[in-house]
């Protein structure tokens, strides 16, 4: 329990510091980058719930984000619902989609690469569908009106979105801490380590995995509302981009899979590396080459992720195997 309390204390201090940070940081650019870091960490944590804690890799995590974004944007645009209610619908839409995808795939016994690939297929399917539907605006996309105000989840200054992202991040970390300490979470780790043994011990693995993916879906849905209210435009390539699917697993694995702070550390470091290399290198391509090399160096020297640098909490767990595709 001591470890748990120290984590909670650490979180409380950390979030208090971050909450007052805008008072000290006058740079709107830094606030905007921090907002992006929190956002990526949040979406990475959603991936971590299923991929890190329950051991089910997904390559199509973006589908919850995109569906949530569409759900709230359509409500806002076509029905005049304020976004603060729209976000509830987005969470719901993400969770329902997750249940459908999860139930269909887990019931069929898909694991490892097979599960990862089916999520990719669902994301692609939704992208194609969103491109053809009337209600999503098809390929033209949806334009949202700029109307700052809390009820619209839009803000005049980057500070507002900073707090929005910070709250999302806090929620995601709270969920991860709760999972680490609950029976529910322990069962999920059991599934990750050895699914057949978990089943034999009487854990309803299908149910647990479906719950995990629903948490991921709900979190992704809220992220969609955040994005669409911040950037006010949504089209299928943005909503269902492979890039975001990759980014969420990237920050999580680089930071430390199956750990509370892995996604945040990964997001912080990778965003910083990206920004710094971009700042010093103008030639197109060169900065990302450096980024790729740094990425490979991190992976080869810290196979358990950056969290391995911080001895102690969370660093001990590793080796969530992706599975050998033996479905």
């Amino acid at each position: 329990m001591a470890a748990r309390n120290s984590t909670l204390l650490f979180c409380a201090i950390g979030f208090a510091a971050l909450a007052f940070a805008p008072l000290g940081i006058s740079s709107k650019f830094y606030l905007d980058i921090l907002t992006l870091i929190f956002f990526t960490a949040y979406i990475g944590q959603s991936w971590n719930i299923l991929g890190g804690y329950a051991g089910q890799f997904s390559f199509g995590g973006v589908m919850f984000f995109g569906t949530g974004a569409y759900a709230s944007s359509i409500l806002v645009n076509s029905f005049g619902v304020p976004a603060i209610i729209g976000v509830v619908a987005a969470v719901f839409a993400g969770a329902v989609l997750a249940l459908c995808v999860g139930y269909l795939s887990f019931r069929s016994g898909l694991r490892g690469s097979y599960f990862a690939l089916i999520t990719l297929a669902f994301a692609e399917l939704l992208r194609v569908v969103a491109n053809s539907l009337e209600i999503t605006g098809g390929g033209v996309g949806l334009f949202l009106t700029y109307a700052p105000g809390l009820q619209n989840l839009q803000f005049k200054t980057p500070v507002g979105f900073y707090y929005f992202a910070l709250i999302l991040l806090a929620i995601s970390i709270a969920i991860a801490i709760w999972l680490e300490n609950s029976r529910f979470g322990a069962q999920r780790v059991a599934i990750r380590e050895n699914e057949d043994a978990a089943e034999a011990l009487g854990i309803n693995t299908l149910r647990r995995k479906c719950q995990a993916i629903m948490i991921m879906g709900a979190m992704g849905g809220a992220a969609g509302t955040f994005y669409s209210q911040k950037y006010l435009y949504l089209d299928p390539p943005i909503a269902y981009s492979v890039h975001l699917s990759v980014e969420m697993l990237l920050v999580t694995i680089v930071g430390g899979m199956g750990t509370v702070f892995g996604p945040l550390i990964g997001s912080l470091v990778l965003h910083t590396v990206n920004e710094v290399t971009r700042n010093f290198i103008d030639t197109p391509g060169l900065s990302l080459i450096v980024y790729g090399i740094i990425l490979i160096i991190i992976i080869s020297y810290l196979p358990n992720g950056l969290i391995g640098l911080f001895k102690g909490r969370g660093a001990k767990k590793t080796d969530a195997r992706q599975g050998d595709g033996d479905a």
Binding site: I253, M257, L288, G292, L295, I296, I299, A320, Q322
Partner: peptide, 14 residues
Amino acid sequence: DQNILLITLGLSII
């Protein structure tokens, strides 16, 4: 496995 994934991802970026 997960690291192989990221190494090949890093490779593709490079």
